[in-house]
């Protein structure tokens, strides 16, 4: 209810600037390809993302598959889920890529969510996205004891879907017209250790609409 928004928790979100998670496309700039050097990894320091990184991720974000969100979006993630927002830095303090996500839900749907993961073209094809994803899964699993991790991906983004499948994600359900009311999204999930029976990833039989989503 409207007025609860004004008083809930004493924080007021500017009415005009709604933070809509729904309209946010999930961005993948990383593509799995067949010519991977098996298990080769890039020397990398992965650390928590901080505000100053916003001023340094230009070359990553100019890439057209990577969305540049508004400030309150980034900062809300930093303020609420700092453990789910990591950046990979290479030699010469260059930003290689980053992942942002959150943890939410109730009961058995308590889960980690990947909001965006992106890798600069210079550092692609080196399994960095995998490393970042694994980190988020680890945190969801070990620190927050979540049941699963999920993410949304454009139904047309075959390379990304393939990559997530390689990382152990399955298509849980299709979300109709999730992306700006046009393209369908796929909700992909990976069960974590707490979900012993892997109940969370049993695919739904029918597609859902965005307003049926429990969390946006």
């Amino acid at each position: 209810m409207g007025h609860h928004r004004a008083c809930k928790n004493g924080l007021w979100k500017p009415i005009g600037v709604t933070i809509s998670y729904l309209a946010v496309p999930f961005n993948v700039s990383f593509r799995a390809r067949s010519f991977f050097v098996p298990n080769s990894r890039k020397m990398t320091t992965i650390r928590r993302f901080c505000c100053n990184d916003l001023l340094r991720f230009t070359s990553v974000n100019l890439d057209h598959l990577t969305e540049t969100f508004n400030m309150s979006f980034y900062m809300t993630y930093l303020a609420r889920w700092p453990d789910y927002f990591h950046v990979a830095e290479g030699p010469g303090n260059r930003i290689m890529g980053y992942i942002m996500g959150k943890v939410e839900g109730q009961g058995e749907s308590w889960h980690g969510h990947v909001t965006a993961v992106t890798v600069s073209p210079e550092y692609r094809r080196q399994q960095l996205a995998k490393k970042l994803m694994n980190l988020l899964e680890d945190i969801s699993d070990k620190i927050d004891k979540a049941y699963f991790v999920d993410l949304f991906v454009r139904a047309s983004n075959t390379p990304a879907i393939k990559m997530y499948e390689k990382l152990g994600y399955v298509i849980y359900r299709r979300v109709l017209r999730y992306y700006s009311g046009e393209e369908d999204g796929l909700d992909m999930r990976k069960a974590l250790s707490r979900d012993v029976e892997k109940k969370s990833i049993i695919p739904l039989k029918r597609p859902v609409t965005p307003d049926e989503l429990e969390y946006d």
Binding site: N9, G10, L11, W12, K13, P14, V17, C50, C51, N52, L54, M71, S72, M75, T76, L78, A79, R80, P82
Partner: peptide, 25 residues
């Protein structure tokens, strides 16, 4: 204008290091 509200969000979620970071940023 909105930065302070986000700083308070960090306070509320007990991410104190972010409070300092937000103000400095």
């Amino acid at each position: 204008r909105e930065s302070a509200d986000l700083t308070f969000l960090a306070y509320r979620h007990r991410n104190y290091s972010k409070v300092i970071e937000f103000v400095q940023f």
